[in-house]
Simulated scan of single mutants.
Amino acid sequence: MLIEGYDDGPLTAGEPLLDRPGFWSNHLLVLCGYGDRAERPDPEWFGDDGADADALSEVLFDPGHWPVFRVPAGTGPGAVVVYRNLAGDYGTDYLLTGPDGSGTRRIARWDADFTGAGLTWRELTGIADGHLSTTEPTEEAESPEPAEGVRDTASRLLLLLPLLTDPEVPEEASARVATALTEVGAPAYTASATADHLLAHLERRSRHDPAWASPLSGGRE
């Protein structure tokens, strides 16, 4: 697998890991935080147990393999999530791409904390749904076939959820995140609370400034 800017990384397709027990707790549990809540985040919120999470973390953070998760789109931008397992420099990179997977550009990264421009809720869900476009389509224009990658809308949304930097998330966001969580295997009885934890943390750390240029229109990390 080749991605511009990652010539030295042992990149490998990560999409098969999405169905492995322990993936979603590894990817999202850190976003639940504590904040002013007494309840400690737990892998069970995502339908995992501690052993699942520990076992998959050894795969996700293996320096010999950097899992890559591609979120293609038929029109408008797609995205790529790269687990950057460089010894001494572990982190997760979030990239935007063109509809055909070209023009890769990093917009954010997660190391000990989040840095980058991030996306609004509308931009995030637009990419997850695969229909966000920065230009108006014409009748003659044909939508390119999506590149290889994640097709499931729920997985697409949750993969990119750490990019959310919107201080005004709409009321329906919690229900949509909760639905996505149940679709990837989280228990129905924890999904709503988990969605609230995730969004509360993201809103607290939000740094999105309406005056900034969106990454979708050329703004940079």
Rank of each mutant, 00 (worst) to 15 (best):
G91M: 02
D196L: 13
A73E: 03
D100F: 01
D111L: 08
A87Q: 11
H208C: 04
H131D: 15
A180K: 02
W24H: 03
L86T: 15
F69S: 01
E221T: 09
L124R: 10
E183Y: 09
W212D: 12
T120E: 05
Y83D: 05
T134P: 00
E136W: 13
W24A: 01
T97W: 02
H65I: 06
A195H: 07
D196R: 15
E171A: 14
H208M: 08
E136I: 11
G9Y: 12
T104R: 03
R176M: 12
L28C: 14
S174I: 02
F46C: 11
E139V: 15
L119P: 06
P162D: 07
S206G: 01
A191P: 04
V71R: 00
A53F: 03
Y94C: 00
L164A: 08
W45K: 00
G91L: 09
A213K: 09
S133D: 13
Y6H: 14
T97I: 02
R220D: 11
A154I: 06
S192E: 12
C32S: 12
I127L: 13
G185W: 05
L160D: 10
L95H: 05
D48L: 08
L216Q: 07
R109T: 11
A38N: 05
T182G: 08
N26P: 08
D8C: 10
A213Y: 01
A200F: 13
S155H: 01
A193M: 12
Y34L: 12
D129W: 09
D89K: 04
R84H: 13
V82F: 03
L11Y: 10
D209Y: 03
L132W: 09
E44M: 03
T12M: 07
E221Y: 06
R37P: 10
R106P: 00
G22M: 11
G33T: 10
T138I: 02
E145I: 11
E168N: 12
R176G: 03
P77Q: 08
P215S: 06
V30E: 13
A108I: 00
L11M: 10
P21F: 10
D52N: 13
R109D: 07
F61E: 12
A51Y: 14
L86S: 12
H197Q: 14
V184W: 07
T104I: 08
E39Y: 05
